[in-house]
Design a binder for these strands. Structure first.
Lengths: 220, 220
DNA sequence: GTCTATAAGCTGATAGAC
DNA sequence: GTCTATCAGCTTATAGAC
């Protein structure tokens, strides 16, 4: 009898485990497809049907998992924010900006190349009325922003860099580096290329570090 | 008899003139409304009905003037491109970059403030699949881009500025200055303000000129 | 959990009276 | 030239059989 009970329990758990796996797998696949399509066509330009087709699932199934299109969009944004924050190598007041600032730029442009969806979806959210980023921007992103400003002020106090307004220096760093995701199409057209390649990203890193480091008073 | 004929002609012309005025006036109003709404919600997020409501005209009337939503969008883009190109103070190889480059930055940020719609609609067009800018980008905009690159190369040859890759320097100038239109919402949220004010645009100009001029090897 | 069928509403565009 | 009425198609979302 013990055996039977045990077996039954094991079997039930095994089934539950399997269903959980399917669920996790579907959630993952839906989020992946949604991320790509939202990045490509924006929130309003994306249809649930397009996402479902991309995963190979019926539309109703997608809506079973996420209930609404907005919910799915929020799911995508939240997942991207996690990666975004985790990958973010924050700058430190103790490490000299010559390395710290250079590292930050290299990292941000690398991120624009490897995860362009994040930058593009965020850009679309800010550009238009959707604005689901308002919450995070007022919370965790603002905290990070404030901390980075403090680091810059520290560097200025120590006279490691020139007296440059920290807030606007960050805006400059962000727009310059994120352009390699958001404006990559424009760049490639103007440079007569089908798309940006290794050398373009290299040049981008080179110009951004060269100009911003020297512009902040850091000699080569 | 001469008098009668003359009078009739005059009256017809007067009527035609008046109708032409109404036509021009309506076209203008529709384009104005469309520009604002396209800038706010993107191409796909904009409805013809919203534009018509904004002008106070029936939807069918708007479509009488522009036939299709795409046509209206193209009309808006073309009008913005004209302003964009006209307002563009191109840089000159003869004028020293200390003035020329500073002027360019001041002008671009001013434009981001005064005509944010242009920057936002262009950003949306590049960010998503719409891409009606591809034509101009391959034509007149590319010509201007190439000319500016040549000016930079000239400055480098004369050793007026450091050896900075001209293409990517322009990308940096554009993204930094246009951020004051495209990312103004993000900026204001992070700085705890309802919207950007005079001092923010001043600081933006200051930081951009300070960092980019010095970063290109131009001493204060 | 999955999927077909369908509701309910909106969108671009047109026909046709004035 | 203007506007009402309306169409055909698509969109989000749900009901209900399996």
């Amino acid at each position: 009898m013990h055996e039977i009970i045990k077996k039954t329990v094991t079997k039930n758990e095994s089934i539950r485990r399997k269903l959980t796996d399917i669920r996790q797998d579907n959630l993952q696949q839906i989020l992946d497809a949604a991320e790509n399509i939202f990045a490509d066509r924006g929130f309003r330009g994306t249809t649930v049907a397009a996402i479902a087709d991309n995963v190979g699932l019926p539309k109703a199934n997608v809506l079973y998992y996420f209930k609404t299109k907005e919910g799915l969009y929020k799911g995508v944004i939240n997942r991207l924010l996690t990666i975004w924050m985790d990958n973010m190598n924050e700058m430190s007041a103790d490490i000299h900006p010559r390395e710290s600032l250079r590292n930050y730029i290299v990292n941000k442009i690398h991120q624009s190349r490897e995860y362009p969806n994040a930058s593009r979806i965020f850009a679309d959210d800010i550009l238009h009325g959707v604005n689901y980023l308002r919450g995070p921007l007022e919370g965790e992103l603002k905290d990070q922003f404030d901390r980075t400003c403090d680091v810059f002020r520290c560097w200025i106090d120590k006279q490691w860099i020139d007296d440059v307004n920290p807030e606007h220096l960050i805006f400059m760093l962000w727009s310059t580096t994120q352009a390699y995701a958001d404006h990559s199409l424009q760049m490639s057209i103007l440079m007569n290329k089908p798309q940006l390649d290794d050398s373009d990203f290299e040049q981008g890193v080179k110009v951004a570090t060269q100009v911003i480091l020297k512009g902040c008073g850091l000699s080569d």
